[in-house]
Design a protein around this nucleic acid. Structure first.
Length: 600
RNA sequence: GGCGGGGUAGCUCAGUAGGUCAGAGCGCACGACUCAUAAUCGUGAGGUCGCGGGUUCGAUCCCCGCCCCCGCUACCA
């Protein structure tokens, strides 16, 4: 048994999440966490909404509200949709808690004290009317190379040249059109070069473990090549104050949103322990060198998890070339594995809320079964390369695999049992066919479990479905529906018991992927209550400042073991109702019309 | 431009440290069966494994060149 930190990327609180988001981090992290709990490990799964940064501020301005109000609203939306998806967080919180502020400031202070946070004067663009940093992306103007009038400050979309915003002809703010001011400004830089050797040593060790996905480790090594100090503060009035004398009171200097967002993994762990009433409990996942940590995210986040976050941890511990010592949190463990997904596209195009190429999670959850979506993501998600979501494939996988394959197996098995016995029958003597099926099912636990542990969920779910296929074949071959004679009664009982036993176990194999329907199947076969625990949304108050907000949490100690368990002989089985809903082909056209903006 | 990923049956993809490696699922055709949401089971057709060279007894898998698609390129998160 190990302590496993399941660290899930923090969704940015600028609106509801779309399928690309949950395919990248939501579902994979939940499958992994649920499986690890079933396998007997002590899992701590944390995340929250990331609420600082320029985009939220701008959007709030646009809507005539405050950043805080906007964050409150979007936090609630995201909490509700992730809970509905069944993501079993121990704590899903947010970056605007007093606890998070304190933890982020503690890290900054110690990294600074250890000498890895250096002050520098830089030239940057600010908005003259607000004094806020104007990120390169928010400046546009005429490209000096090709004359394109709407080049962005970081890159020209027309000719592809990389730009410096000062090169733009007639630069203007994309936010309000004003001319940006290029000013000298003081910022703190994380001295990544001073931590580069330590980072490289850590990556060497991680690479040697052989478990990282190849593209992730390669990319991480790559960005280590020309590593430079990176600014960790911004001129902005929305964020965490810089906890140093002379800086604290400056209303326009704040920590860079990415500096604080990754600290959320630690602060959420601490908040979880505090809410539990055992405030030091988080240390089991963070101070024990044997503890394992897995970070789930989309590939656009790799830099922050395989470089910035480990650098912050190394700097905090004083493990760079300048030495130093750990702060109050002690020596914190670096990521065991950065598990990055690729991107999900949508009918061949990249998701884009602004261009309307988007399917929001909540819309899907409103119209379709949550496990149908989870199934699609597990079976066809962007695990090792980009993958495409199409409504046609969604319908075809749901109908062909979930409904006709798995759901129908449950249904035909339960129907026959209900009709012939009304309860799970006790088996008579088993034949070779029966034993062979049970052996196949038993072997499934090692195979499927091993694949999930290695983050090969597509193959894992495929393997589980292959076992389902074997059970369907068994039912067809043994043809219990033909065993009608009184002298065949015992054989019938044996066959139906074996089928029920196999379905019972397949349900366990599929439970990390399909937790909601696992509960339905469980009851169909006479099980008591829920098989898989579900997260719940709880209204809480900030532990330090009383601000109310919703969290996702749960009691997962009742998680069933990842093992062959006996189907309850004698448990009543009634005529079943189908677990999964078959989708009409018209869904495809309907949804495509919706995408085109026609109301269906 | 740089870095990375990918181009394998109609579709979605797996695969080989080079020699039963030409595969799976879906779709299609045919057959079996009827317990089940017309679900299930079996059989079959189908591909010069992006293009051109090279190394080798032998390459889809290694090397070189080329074409095409996609992503990232670090102060948006």
């Amino acid at each position: 048994m190990a302590h496993i930190l399941s660290a899930v990327a923090w969704p940015y609180a600028n609106g509801p999440r779309h399928l690309g988001h949950v395919a990248g981090f939501g579902v994979p992290s939940d499958v992994f966490s649920r499986y690890m709990r079933m396998a007997g490990h002590e899992v701590l799964m944390v995340s929250g909404t990331d609420e600082h940064g320029t985009p939220i501020l701008i959007q709030a301005d646009k809507e005539g509200t405050t950043a805080r109000e906007l964050a409150d609203r979007n936090n609630r939306i995201i909490v509700e949709e992730l809970a509905a998806l069944g993501c079993s967080y121990d704590l899903f919180t947010r970056t605007t808690t007093a606890n998070h502020y304190a933890v982020a400031q503690e890290l900054f202070r110690q990294v600074h004290a250890n000498g890895y946070m250096v002050e520098r004067t830089t030239r940057g663009a600010i908005s003259p009317s607000t004094g806020r940093t104007l990120p390169d992306r928010y400046i546009e103007g005429t490209c000096p190379y090709c004359g394109y009038a709407e080049a962005r400050g970081d890159q020209c979309d027309s000719c592809g040249n990389q730009l410096d915003p000062t090169e733009l002809i007639e630069p203007r703010s994309r936010i309000n059109g004003e001319t940006p001011q290029f000013v000298e400004t003081q910022h703190f830089f994380l001295d990544l070069p001073a931590l580069a050797d330590a980072l490289a040593a850590w990556l060497d060790e991680r690479e040697a473990s052989g478990t990282w996905r190849p593209n992730v480790i390669r990319f991480s090594r790559n960005i280590l090549q020309d590593i430079k100090p990176r600014a960790m503060t911004r001129d902005i009035d929305w964020g965490i104050p810089v906890p140093l004398e002379g800086w604290e009171d400056q209303p326009t200097k704040r920590l860079y949103v990415w500096f604080d967002a990754v600290i959320g993994y630690l602060s959420a762990s601490i908040e979880w322990a505090r809410r539990l009433g055992e405030p030091e409990r988080w240390r089991e996942w963070w101070n024990d060198p044997e503890a394992l940590s897995y970070y789930f995210m989309g590939k656009d986040n790799i830099t922050f998890h395989s470089q910035i976050w480990p650098a912050e941890l190394l700097g905090y511990a004083g493990r760079g070339e300048r030495g130093g010592e750990p702060g109050a949190y002690g020596d914190l463990t670096l990521p065991t594995e950065v598990v990055s997904s690729e991107f999900l596209t949508m009918e061949g195009k990249q998701f884009s809320s602004s261009r309307g190429v988007v399917i929001y999670l909540r819309d899907v959850l409103e119209r379709y079964q949550v496990d149908a979506l989870r199934y699609f993501i597990c079976a066809a998600g962007p695990e090792n390369s980009d993958s495409d979501f199409t409504w046609r494939e969604f319908v075809s996988r749901t109908n062909g695999e979930l409904v006709a394959g798995w759901g129908n197996l449950v249904n035909r098995t339960a129907s026959m049992i209900a009709k012939s016995f009304g309860e799970i029958p006790a088996p008579g003597e088993r034949t070779d066919v029966d034993e062979a099926l049970l052996a196949t099912v038993r072997a499934g636990f090692d195979t499927v479990g091993g694949l999930i542990a290695r983050h090969r969920q597509r193959q894992a779910v495929g393997e589980a479905m292959r076992v389902v296929g074997e059970v369907n074949k068994y039912v067809t071959d043994t043809a219990p529906f033909k065993l009608k004679g009184e002298d065949e009664r015992e054989r019938l009982a044996t066959v139906l018991h074996t089928a029920a036993q196999a379905v019972w176990c397949c349900n366990t194999l599929l439970a990390p992927f399909l937790p909601h329907s696992a509960n339905a199947v469980h009851r169909t076969l006479g099980g008591d209550g829920d098989l898989m625990p579900m997260p719940r949304v709880v209204e809480v108050e900030d532990l330090d400042d009383g601000h109310p907000y919703p969290i996702i949490t749960g009691e997962y100690s009742t998680t069933p073991p990842w093992a062959f368990t006996d189907v309850p002989v004698g448990a009543p089985v009634a005529k079943p109702t189908p677990i999964f809903t078959k989708l009409d082909d018209s869904v495809v056209e309907e949804e495509l019309a919706r995408l085109r903006g026609e109301d269906a």
